[in-house]
């Protein structure tokens, strides 16, 4: 199964460069990462379904919300994971971040005469040299931009995890919530306040009375309809009751969800088998090699074209000299 490689944009031919055992292990790791990404996206889709059902009380719209939210969460998480995939090998990493170092050595050199085969050989030799690189980069010195980027990443992940956690909690405590809504709907205190508001007996406690009327409205389905998921029309009221009932348990569940969403990023950032892994190293060398080859070929063509212009172009005609 190559799902992991496809999701993370790794080509199958990269595996041929690795020893069989290492290649197998790397495929396994990326498959597990992909599985995590899929589980998190499915949870995102499930939360879309729950939000859709609570807000619109309609299965068709809810399924639409599930597809939309699942897709958005999948793309966002994939993007963040992809952006976090950075090799730890010092030479490769520094080369990737600044390709000009590599091109500097060809400044003033005549590349117009090199053939495709020669360019390919130069790149292959370079790849061989880079493959020898085994020095792991030291942690980069602190820079303010890193803090902003990390904060942004973590904020996005935590926002997604909180949205998913809240929706899944509604599903988890659905029966309890419905029982509580039943109690609220039949609470003598609320019913009496709502009736007092309708009778308009005294202009006292208007805020409480209006709140009671609104609460009862939210707990009553629209005419000819039944509640599909939780017996409340308001998502905010559902959250309000859920958070009141859960108390600190809500924090525990939210933290567990946050952990669930952060773990794949920790793996990508910290694991020796991903950031320091052979496949990512090979993919990085491949990327450098391609750029290097393109540089050589394009430089050759530029120099050739420039020379041709210098020798064959009729400048007199342009300047109008007869």
């Amino acid at each position: 199964m190559m799902l992991g490689l496809h999701l993370f944009g790794m080509r199958k031919n990269l595996l041929h460069q690795l020893p069989e055992e290492v290649a197998k292990r790397q495929v396994n790791i990326y498959n597990l990462l992909a599985l995590m990404l899929l589980v998190l996206s499915i949870l995102g889709a499930a939360s879309g379904l729950i939000y859709g059902l609570v807000i619109f009380n309609n299965w068709a719209i809810a399924v639409g919300c599930a597809v939309l939210l699942g897709f958005i969460f999948f793309l966002l998480l994939q993007l963040l994971l992809f952006l976090s995939l950075q090799t730890r090998f010092k030479d490769i990493k520094s080369q990737l971040s600044n390709m000009d170092n590599l091109y500097e050595q060809y400044k003033g050199h005549d590349l117009s005469s090199i053939s495709d085969e020669e360019a390919l050989e130069m790149v292959t030799n370079y790849r061989m040299t880079m493959r020898e690189s085994a020095i792991i980069a030291e942690p980069t010195p602190f820079h303010f931009s890193q803090l902003i980027i990390s904060t942004l990443f973590v904020s996005i992940i935590l926002t997604i995890s909180f949205l998913v956690a809240s929706a899944i909690q509604i599903w988890m405590y659905r029966t309890t919530l419905n029982n509580t809504f039943f109690e609220i709907k039949n609470s003598t205190e609320i019913v009496e306040l709502a009736e007092a508001f309708k009778k308009q007996e005294k202009p006292l406690f208007l805020e409480q009375k209006m709140e009671a009327v609104w609460t009862l409205q939210m707990l009553t389905p629209a005419k000819g309809e039944d509640f599909k998921f939780v017996n409340c029309q308001s998502i905010l009221m559902t959250f309000d009751v859920l958070f009141s009932g859960l108390g600190n348990t809500k924090i525990v569940i939210d933290l567990l969800f946050a952990l669930l969403y952060l773990i794949p990023f920790l793996i990508v950032k910290r694991s020796e088998e991903v950031a320091g892994g052979a496949l990512l190293k090979e993919a990085s060398i491949e990327a450098i090699g391609k750029s290097y080859l393109m540089f050589l070929l394009s430089s050759r063509d530029i120099q050739k074209t420039k020379r041709k212009i210098e020798t064959t172009f009729d400048y007199d005609k342009v300047l109008g000299i007869k």
């Binding site: 405590y173 029966t175 309890t176 205190e189 009932g245 859960l246 348990t249």
Partner: peptide
């Protein structure tokens, strides 16, 4: 599920209707 949902806490939810 039942143990973690504290109905006693819901009593405070009714505070907004307190007259």
């Amino acid at each position: 599920n039942n143990e973690t949902f504290r109905h006693s806490e819901i009593a405070q939810w009714y505070d907004k209707f307190d007259t």
